[in-house]
Amino acid sequence: MKNSLRVHAALSLVALIYAANYSLSKDVMPHYMGPFGIVTLRIVGAALFFTVLSRLVAPQDRIQGRADTGRSIICGVTGIGVNQLLFFSGLNYTSPINASLLQTIAPIVVVLASAVLLREKITGARVGGILLGAIGAATLILSRNPTDAIYPNATLGNILILLNATAFGVYLVLVTPLMRKYNAFTVLARIFQVGALVAVPFGWRNVLETNYAAFPLYIWSEVIYMVLFLTIIAYLLNNWALKYASPALLGVYIYLQPVLAVLIAVSLGKDHFTWGRALQAALIFGGVFLVSRKPRPQVPLEPVLD
């Protein structure tokens, strides 16, 4: 299989893994295990895995220097610890479709964070995209849906998911220099170790107090899915695909995830898709599309000869 086909297969599988999680997590939370307990199991499991893998793949590679160490700590806090705590807390309160749509705001946050942290210019088209995405997100957060009776705290959940997408967007900007300088597994090991330090104080009690003997087989399989596929395999596939995939291609797969999430949620009877949500999705997708477009390089003017 050629690399291009492998990249498409990897990114499609990652999108499917993430999309299925929006519905599968609903089976586990909050009846069998609380969101902080799930986050703790995920992050601690991934921290152990990536720590061992980094020692095997790049035993001499170490994050060095005060600046890189500080950056890795901030990445672990924003991209792993806070990010996951916000995501699963929000998903616990809101519907799978709302959560999947709001997650696509992350590229808009990346552009804003790049402008603030890296002083990159924002073009007029990107400003329009930011406003369009913001309108879509705001209407989605504040709107009333047929699932309101099932998710009475959906507004709070929507806000937590939006904060999660914001934290993840900032993380993507901050982690890029580390990924270019060090082995990817060295960086992943460090940020998951930091993330574990953030998550464990919130979730250790939930992990210890959970009645695992009451888990049916399908709940065990979904917990294993969230630890193994959602955390470890998805990160491995994403990092491999990033070596070959263009930003434009990655942008296409941003749109695939919520589409798959909608199909899975509706087919499992866990959510409903309405025309109002379709309009909100169109606004968010349109905003992300405008923001993700690279500005055209300016062609220098030819000198005028007298």
Rank of each mutant, 00 (worst) to 15 (best):
T231I: 01
L217E: 15
L237A: 10
W220H: 12
Y225C: 00
T210W: 03
I224P: 06
L236D: 03
I219E: 00
Q193C: 13
V223S: 08
G203K: 00
V200C: 03
Y225M: 02
Y212G: 01
V194N: 10
N238W: 04
I219C: 09
F202A: 13
V194R: 05
A234E: 01
L228Y: 14
I232P: 07
W240Q: 06
A241L: 05
F192T: 11
T231K: 03
E209T: 14
N239I: 04
F202Q: 05
N206K: 11
N238E: 13
I233W: 12
I224G: 14
L228S: 10
A196M: 08
L237R: 12
I224T: 14
L217V: 11
T231D: 02
S221Y: 07
V200Q: 06
A196S: 15
N211F: 00
F215E: 07
L236P: 01
P216W: 05
L217N: 11
A196L: 05
P201K: 12
V223R: 00
A213P: 02
Q193D: 06
A199K: 06
W220Q: 12
S221M: 15
V227I: 15
F192R: 09
W204C: 05
I219H: 03
E209I: 01
F215H: 01
Y218T: 06
W220G: 05
F229Q: 05
L208G: 04
L230V: 00
W204K: 01
R205F: 13
A213S: 13
M226E: 03
L237F: 10
I233M: 09
V227H: 01
V194I: 15
Q193T: 13
L228Q: 07
M226S: 10
N238A: 07
E209V: 04
